[in-house]
Design a binder for these strands. Sequence first.
DNA 1: GAGTGGTCTAGACCACGGT
DNA 2: CCGTGGTCTAGACCACTCC
Lengths: 248, 248
Amino acid sequence: MDQTLQDTDTNIGFKPLYAQVKDQLIRRLVNGTWQPGMNIPSEQELARQLSVSQGTVRKALDAMTAENLLVRRQGRGTFVAEPEDSRILFQFFRLTADDGPDNDAFPQSRLLRWSQESATEVEAEALAIKSKSPVWRIERVRQIGGSSTIAETICIPTITYPGFEDLTEIPNNIYQLYSSRWGITIAKADEQLKAILCDAGDSATLGCDVGEPLLLITRIARDLESNPVELRCSRCLTNDMHYAVNLP
Amino acid sequence: MDQTLQDTDTNIGFKPLYAQVKDQLIRRLVNGTWQPGMNIPSEQELARQLSVSQGTVRKALDAMTAENLLVRRQGRGTFVAEPEDSRILFQFFRLTADDGPDNDAFPQSRLLRWSQESATEVEAEALAIKSKSPVWRIERVRQIGGSSTIAETICIPTITYPGFEDLTEIPNNIYQLYSSRWGITIAKADEQLKAILCDAGDSATLGCDVGEPLLLITRIARDLESNPVELRCSRCLTNDMHYAVNLP
DNA sequence: GAGTGGTCTAGACCACGGT
DNA sequence: CCGTGGTCTAGACCACTCC
């Protein structure tokens, strides 16, 4: 392991060894050396490979586990996290029924339309691409407990998802598709929430009145290197639902 | 340190040593042995006191630091976290301006009314008290960037805050008041968000039209032992603001 | 029984802050 | 200069899983 950065003098740019180890391991995820579901080498083996102590490897692995990149199972080993429904639901889906939180079912979705268009100013800025770049825009409506609750618009850069036009269907768990088809891992996301009024379009989609209040969720999803790879805009009926946040 | 729980056999109820250490240290916060702002003993000293290794104490301290209960400063020591404006703002206030996030200023508030009343069913359940128990209900309006943005109703059990009636004013940072006056530390909070329409009361308070969309935030704040000690209901104008969430 | 992660210990050196 | 937290190492024992 490169320890030159640890040298005394000029601590500008200093990075602890465990952080360097973590960067190395993330690189293996980024370049596909380690695929989702894989059993990665043991702590001892990684310590040998990188010429650091087991404790330092452990600190890096623990940090990555906390970020939902790895899953550790005592007696079995350490595995690359997969985008299964339950994890994605837990990590990224914060809408819950007011009464019994039936968080076990992934919300069904019905595709309304999808086409290639050119990015608006706002979309381009969010996705860090040039204005008017080609993007896929996908519109769908999601059901929770049998009723249409969310009108969703997903916007992704065409260049990031080559061959997207060949798809015949869009799965409920689109992050699993990103992973299996393009090797893109959604590692984190930033959301911004506002209250808005239902317009004519969403009224038709959701089967509610124009002027009803909707919870607007604007999400920028990022890959392992924090590049924005998806912009999602959800308009949610929150009569029997709420968005749950734990602080901290 | 009591290590009996670690014994082999019957691992029901097993707790790692560092977790037991953490519980011990939290007890010192709860019973006031350690006050906000205090410099707590060094890792070495705590290890001696509790008869565990420094590494085990460190793991407990790191966990408490991650929960914003402690602040560690290299070369100086470890301190009990204080409810200063900047920390409370960062930890519990997620509303931000759409453009420049001017997150340095604590939002000013204007007191509308406060009185002792009896808890509704909903309030009683949220605060884990009996229905119709006496509570203080405080209503105020908060300004951000000079304009009234949030109508806020705070509900706290009378019994938890003895002498509340003697107060002559309510500070902007009410969590600092809870801490200094009653030794109550707000350690975490759960929030539920919905979109609603502005009613006549909030219209007058916020100076907006009836029927405008508002972001409704219902917060249950908890003390060090996870007891609910405040119920807060905020109705926010989100025309130029948004509620920011990072996932994870 | 062999191998894994989970925990605990002991000791070392470093950078930082105050004396 | 000393004491602090921050990092790194080496080795030990445990519980769990699979063979």
